[in-house]
């Protein structure tokens, strides 16, 4: 492509292929600058009037879960019997917070493994809350009972209690919260027993370390 030099430098203007390059005069430079500024101004003006200020919030969903390291936001919802439960009432204990639904095939596929992992760690002081979303309390209670769940099953069918602080797009969502109420990890996939035990044990390991005892 660059076998020959740009025409404007290589040869004088020829008929047909003009390439007269004169020095741009000061007025041309001024006009050019004015037009350039005008174009940018026009873009800004059009953008301001077309609602572009809302562009750039990115992602498919804009409201996201709290971050690892944040204090887990509190919520109050009910268990399957209608009793009120608050997240903050478990402060001081490591909490495994799971959002699930019996309608969700991956949640069902992992259910026995999750229960097995919890059964291992419950004696060590772990508390697990399984918040069922988008289904009736009866469905959640029936499924959990039939499959031997020993964790506390909470239900929030329309996400009115937890949705604001915990917008859930993935089922299951696992959030691991330490004794101080700080989120230590978030797992957005279905787990097997081994993986679940590994994630949850980290809350217990920290709790047994001297530093955490002091806090």
């Amino acid at each position: 492509m660059a076998e020959f030099e740009p025409a404007s430098r290589a040869e004088p203007p020829r008929s047909g292929s003009e390439a007269a390059h004169q020095r741009p005069r000061a007025t041309s430079i001024v006009i050019g600058l004015v037009v350039a500024v005008a174009i940018i101004a026009a873009a800004v003006a059009v953008g301001a009037n077309s609602g572009w200020s809302s562009i750039g919030h990115g992602g498919i969903n804009q409201r996201l879960l709290p971050k690892v390291g944040d204090v887990a936001p509190d919520f109050e919802t009910t268990d399957v019997y209608g009793n009120s439960v608050r997240l903050s009432q478990f402060r001081g204990q490591p909490v495994w917070l799971m959002f699930w639904g019996s309608w969700c095939p991956p949640c069902r596929a992992e259910f026995p493994d999750i229960q097995a992992a919890y059964a291992q760690l419950e004696p060590k002081g772990l508390r697990m809350l399984g918040v069922s979303l988008r289904e009736s309390p009866l469905d959640a209670a029936t499924y959990a009972a039939r499959n031997g769940a020993t964790f506390l099953v909470l239900t929030d069918p329309d996400e009115s209690d937890t949705g604001a602080a915990y917008p859930i797009y993935n089922f299951p969502t696992h959030i691991f919260i330490d004794r101080d109420g700080v989120i230590r990890s978030i797992v957005l996939e279905d787990m097997d027993t081994e993986q679940a035990v590994a994630e949850a044990s980290r809350l217990l390991d920290d709790a047994s370390s001297p530093g955490a005892d002091a806090g």
Partner: peptide, 22 residues
């Protein structure tokens, strides 16, 4: 980052105007 995406879009808009004038 949001501001960067927005700025990118404003650049695109100004570019469109420049091309139209061109």
């Amino acid at each position: 980052m949001d501001a960067v995406v927005r700025l990118s879009f404003y650049c695109f808009a100004a570019g469109s105007f420049a091309f139209a004038a061109s």
